[in-house]
């Protein structure tokens, strides 16, 4: 059997965990799930047994405790592989699991061919490059890149079994002691339908006034490139890309952004890209759906004026 850590939010399994359950079935073995704290309905996801971990100390997230539990269950069930979603939590729990067991870990896999030897395809450079690798391990540890594997429902009445992990003080040393809610307001970059984004070509902090104006007219979020955050023109929370935010708007408007692979790594989910750039040869102009060549300082205000006219 293979064991999958299933994360929950608001009482439901999160999509990246369901994607992981789908990928786990490619091992051709029964799939067991570990749920922490509470059960959730997995009957449509091909799970033979859902193990629900319960312990007084599990009220607050404690990554080492999650890793310890996952290991205890993997040993108890003699799991032939252990998987989790390639989320922040999934990756950190699996890294800790790998550390305590001395096993290799392949992060952010997009496919698995059960061996031996087991081979995986995994993301590098935030998805700008793929790696095919052999995972030489008696118990492969794998995280699955989010939103790559489509969820395939498979109906199976999962047995739900309680699981009582043994946790030490050491497992609970690192735990969430406080949650600070984010201040509301503004259009969130991850959820925006339109993102108007500026790069070094915007020229200055003040230059972003025309970007903000267009974003305001479109109900869009403002984004930017790393050149802009490094210069201190915008906060890092606006940065799109490999080390910034990944966006998935209907339209992404890239103004004065050259289109480095690390910026494009944040745009994989964008439905349409409009590039505005004075250099027709810029990679962004080749990798966009629509282009306007020229000076953004003229083009962006002209688009705003045109929108005002038709509104």
């Amino acid at each position: 059997m293979v064991l999958v850590l299933v994360e929950q939010a608001g009482g439901n399994a999160i999509d990246p965990s369901l994607q992981t359950l789908t990928l786990a079935r490619s091992f051709g073995q029964p799939v067991h799930a570990l749920l922490v704290g509470s059960a959730t309905d997995l009957t449509q996801h091909g799970v033979a047994v859902a193990h629900v971990a319960q312990h007084v100390a599990l009220g607050a997230y404690a990554p080492d405790a999650w890793a310890a539990m996952l290991n205890q269950l993997a040993v108890q069930l003699n799991a032939s592989a252990v998987l989790a979603a390639g989320t922040d939590r999934g990756n950190e729990v699996m890294a800790r699991f790998a550390a305590r067991t001395g096993l290799p870990l392949a992060a952010n896999c997009t496919s698995v061919s059960p061996g031996p030897p087991l081979t995986v395809t995994r993301l590098r450079w935030g998805g700008s490059l793929l790696e095919e690798a052999r995972l030489n391990s008696e118990r492969p540890l794998i995280t699955v890149a989010p939103y790559v594997v489509p969820i395939e429902p498979s109906s199976m009445p999962a047995d739900v079994e309680p699981f009582a992990p043994e946790l030490t003080d050491e497992n609970l040393l690192v735990r969430v002691v406080e949650h600070v809610a984010a201040p509301g307001g503004g259009v969130s970059l991850t959820e925006a339908k339109v993102v108007v984004s500026g790069g070094r070509g915007v020229g200055s902090k003040e230059g972003f006034a025309i970007i903000e104006e267009l974003a305001g007219l479109l109900g869009a979020a403002v984004g930017c490139s790393r050149a802009v955050t490094s210069a201190g023109w915008r906060p890092h929370t606006d940065q799109v890309g490999q080390t910034g935010t990944k966006v998935a708007p209907d339209v992404y408007i890239a103004c004065g952004i050259s289109g480095a692979t690390q910026h494009m790594a944040g745009l994989k989910g964008a439905k349409r890209i409009l590039a505005i750039n004075s250099d027709a040869q810029a990679p962004m102009m080749q990798n966009a759906d629509y282009t306007v060549a020229g000076d953004l300082k003229e083009i962006v205000p002209a688009i705003s004026a045109e929108i005002r006219k038709v509104k």
Binding site: A275, N287, D289, Y290, V292, A293, A302, E306
Partner: peptide, 14 residues
């Protein structure tokens, strides 16, 4: 992506 040109400069706004 196929990079369809919508024009050049401010004239591309419409």
């Amino acid at each position: 992506r196929r990079a369809e040109s919508l024009g050049t400069g401010a004239a591309a706004a419409p």
